[in-house]
């Protein structure tokens, strides 16, 4: 896989070119990069054979952290770590409980926590403004408040930079003993423990890391759309993240970004072509990918490579 960095560089270049050539796509691509970062977390858990069907809660935590803090502290460079911190802390707390469970219980408990968070965001109307959501306005970047086109470029740049950073981090992590142990949880967990590797701690680390990336992804989404609603935590949003992971392919840290870009583009073009049935088109794309290209976009690319 020596060509992976090359491919990543080419991909980044293509994204920049695309964002430059078609201004309105810059927004879509920024969102795709943000979701890609969150999906990296799904990828980690998939390595351990676990599917989180509630991962959108970390996006929501990151996004709402930004929404709540922005009026008093509009600095993006502070908001991002704050959002990451909140999501990480939350991930650690529920992770301690969740890593005791596997398979459907793991997935459903994640779903349960996400749904509780979703309900609270809707119910606590006095604090969260319910489904109307909260507007994120007046962000500053290192103390400056650039014009809209510049600001869009800055957000795109931050998202791309963080995507590369987290992509590298995940690649390194997956190659490390801790990362390799994840696969052990998937296949033969008991064997792992015989060898003296504490499976729960391995999974917890991955879970907390995935929560962190979820929070960062959510914060980026909030800063880009500049309006946060509870829908970001709904279970279908979690389903989309898993969808993206498989669409892109779980074989590489590039997968989530390939998947997220493909997902957003398909959705935008499907919605433009048939506004009433975009969901059906997305569903059909997903079916085709699973049935005929279970390795996702990455799988297609790397297979052709070897050939």
């Amino acid at each position: 896989m020596k060509r992976e960095p090359l491919l990543a560089a080419l991909g980044a270049f293509a994204l920049i070119a695309c964002a430059w050539a078609v201004p309105w796509l810059k927004f879509i691509l920024t969102i795709a990069l943000a979701k890609g970062i969150a999906v990296l977390g799904i990828l980690l858990l998939l390595r351990a054979g676990q599917v989180s069907f509630g991962h959108s809660m970390f996006l929501a935590l990151g996004a709402y952290t930004v929404a709540f803090m922005a009026p008093t502290e509009p600095e993006v460079l502070l908001l991002l770590p704050a959002a990451a911190l909140v999501a990480t802390g939350f991930g650690l707390v529920i992770g301690l409980f969740l890593v005791r469970y596997r398979d459907i219980f793991f997935g459903m408990l994640n779903l349960a926590f996400a749904m509780v968070l979703y309900s609270l965001l809707e119910k606590l109307y006095a604090i969260t403004k319910g489904t109307d959501g909260i507007r994120v306005a007046g962000l500053t970047f290192a103390g400056t408040q650039p014009e809209r086109p510049v600001q869009e470029w800055v957000m795109f740049g931050i998202a791309l930079g963080l995507a590369i950073l987290f992509g590298l981090l995940v690649s390194v992590y997956l190659a490390s003993p801790m990362g390799r142990a994840l696969a052990g949880i998937k296949t033969r967990e008991t064997r792992l423990e015989f060898m003296g590797v504490p499976a729960r701690r391995v999974l917890l680390f991955a879970y907390v890391l995935s929560a962190l990336m979820g929070g960062v992804g959510g914060a980026l989404v909030a800063m880009t759309t500049r309006h946060v609603t509870p829908q970001i935590a709904y279970w279908t949003a979690s389903g989309e993240l898993v969808f993206i992971a498989i669409l892109g392919g779980a074989g590489s840290a590039l997968g989530p970004f390939l998947g997220a870009t493909a997902f957003e583009l398909v959705r935008v073009y499907a919605a433009a072509a048939v506004a009433e049935a975009w969901q059906m088109i997305l569903g059909a794309v997903l079916l085709v990918v699973i049935l005929f290209a279970p390795g996702g976009v990455w799988g297609l690319l790397s297979r052709r490579w070897r050939a």
Partner: peptide
């Protein structure tokens, strides 16, 4: 040019831009 509101704010805000900047 009709756009579905249902997929959520992040999608809608993107669609608004598409309508203005692209369509």
């Amino acid at each position: 040019f009709f756009v579905d509101e249902a997929p959520g704010t992040d999608h809608l805000v993107g669609e608004f831009r598409r309508l203005v900047q692209n369509e």
